[in-house]
Amino acid sequence: MTMPSNDILSLDLPDCAERSWARQAIGLLQGDARRSADTHLIKPVFPGLQDISIYLKDESTHPTGSLKHRLARSLILYGICNGYILQGTTLVEASSGSTAVSEAYFARILGLPFIAVMPKTTSPQKIEAIKRFGGRCHFVDRSDQVYQAAQQIADETHGHYLDQFTNAERATDWRGNNNVAESIFAQMEKEPDPTPEWVVMSAGTGGTSATIGRYIRYRSLSTRLCVADVENSVFFDSYRSGDRTLVSDKGSRIEGIGRPRVEPSFLPTVIDHMMRIPDAASLAAMYVLSDRIFRQVGGSTGTNFYCLCEIAAQMKREKRKGSLVTLICDSGARYHDTYYNADWLKEKGFQLQPYIDQLNRFLDTGTFQTSLTQ
């Protein structure tokens, strides 16, 4: 009878050299987080909204100028901690601009190659920022082509596709760790109405709205979440119908938000209400808010602000008081060739004045004209 062998079968113990690089990389990312951990919460005064306090979380003050700074750091940490990103790994992203700018910044810090896949219509300022941080840009004709192109480039370079549209909601620690929701509510604690009636957020990946919605539930807060969508985006229709297979052959004209498909990171179950905002209203609100706070904001911030004004108008009609919070997603400096260019607006057929007049009247007098003739 043959006795079983008592020999221990083993490979040589590895030196785990890549773990040393990972520890160093995470230390660099954590250092950036400590230096740029929080952003200002602005409280502008609008004469027509005496009983409603408006707060703007200014994410444009991050080192890379947008809300996506937080997301980019989280996505790269997620890739390193999962073992997907190693020393020398090429990072690839599908992005209309701001996320790619932030990822290029972090890639340079870590000494990693970075390639952004984006529509040709992306603003020149964002393209230049990506290149300035050492990244490369690969252009496609339509926004729905970015996914396949990004995956193909990652495969060809043996790199890692960061895939913000899938990983945004899972890479961010929604319970805390200084995510944007935790920061908002911590800054609101000593305000007259510390628990906002509503937080308003537009959807690009859906990751930020997922983080805010989860955090509200985790903290058992009475705050509700309203997500603003835009034209040529399927998020609103999916929320209303429950159909996650919806697609569109058109791209959003408001950079950074709105998608031609229902992204995996979009979680309708944590959303309390949605609105679809006309693009002209978004851009008009961008102009009005920029004038009121003495700094230029981007188009997605205009979407947020117009949606917030719709909610504030309903609160006034119901004689309700309280606070509302939304985000300044990025600076208007990135859109001088488009949204802040009169010739571009005319070429696209935008007529902003009716919405500009509507918003100024509301902010000054509290009267919101619901029927507009464009």
Rank of each mutant, 00 (worst) to 15 (best):
L283N: 03
I216F: 12
F368A: 06
R219T: 02
V180I: 12
L41S: 11
R132M: 15
I85W: 06
V101E: 07
A25R: 09
E18I: 01
T172K: 04
A94T: 01
G207Q: 00
G31T: 09
W198H: 02
I271K: 02
D357I: 05
E189Q: 14
P196M: 03
S238H: 02
L91S: 12
I254L: 03
D7C: 04
N179E: 05
E263G: 01
L363R: 08
G97I: 14
R132L: 15
L11W: 12
P119T: 10
S248D: 03
T2D: 15
R240W: 03
Y218P: 00
Y78H: 12
D51V: 07
A280P: 00
R34G: 13
D144K: 01
T370A: 13
V234I: 12
K190E: 14
F294H: 15
D279H: 10
P4V: 07
V247S: 12
T208A: 14
H40P: 04
L289F: 03
I52A: 08
D249K: 03
T122I: 14
I212V: 14
P260R: 06
F114Q: 07
A37P: 15
G27C: 10
R224T: 00
S95I: 03
T166R: 14
Q145V: 01
L372W: 09
T245E: 13
R34H: 11
L221W: 00
G256S: 09
D38I: 00
E59I: 05
K346T: 12
P260N: 02
P354L: 10
L11E: 10
P268W: 08
F106P: 00
E169Y: 06
P268Q: 09
